[in-house]
Simulated assay, not measured.
Amino acid sequence: MDPETTRSALRDFCAERLGADLAARFVRLARPGFELTAAGPGEAAGHSRFGGRAMLEPGTPWPTCEGFPLSLIAVLDTDALAPWLHDVLPAGTGLLNFFCLDADSEQCDPASYELSLKYDCFHPQLGKVISTRSAHAVETDPPARSSVFDPVVWAAAPGFDFPDTWDPAWGTLDLGPEADDMARAMPGQYVEELLADWARRPGALVSEDIAFGWPKFPTGSSPMVPWGEDPTTYHHLLQLSGQDEWYLGGDGGWMHWSIPTDALRAGDFSRAIPTPDIW
Rank of each mutant, 00 (worst) to 15 (best):
T6P: 08
R7K: 15
F13E: 10
F13N: 08
C14G: 00
A15Q: 11
A15M: 12
A20C: 08
D21L: 07
A23W: 01
R25G: 09
F26H: 12
L29C: 09
F34Y: 09
F34H: 11
E35C: 11
E35P: 06
A39G: 00
G42C: 10
G42M: 09
A44P: 14
R49A: 13
F50S: 01
R53I: 09
R53T: 10
R53E: 11
T60A: 05
F68H: 14
L70H: 06
L76W: 03
D77H: 13
D77I: 09
D79H: 07
L81K: 05
P83T: 03
D87M: 00
D87H: 05
L89H: 13
L96T: 04
S105V: 08
Q107M: 10
P110A: 04
P110N: 00
K118N: 12
P124C: 01
L126G: 02
G127D: 02
G127R: 04
I130T: 12
R133F: 10
S134M: 00
V148W: 00
F149D: 05
A157K: 13
P158A: 08
G159L: 02
F160L: 06
F160N: 01
D161F: 09
T165G: 10
G176Y: 07
D180A: 11
D181N: 00
A183M: 03
M186H: 14
M186N: 15
Q189R: 07
E193Q: 11
E193C: 12
L194P: 08
A196E: 15
D197K: 07
A204G: 13
V206E: 15
V206H: 14
V206T: 15
D209E: 12
I210A: 03
I210W: 03
G213R: 08
P215R: 08
P215Q: 09
T219L: 13
P223W: 05
T233R: 15
T233P: 01
T233F: 03
G242E: 06
D251A: 15
W257H: 13
I259E: 00
P260A: 06
A263N: 01
R265A: 06
T275G: 00
D277V: 06
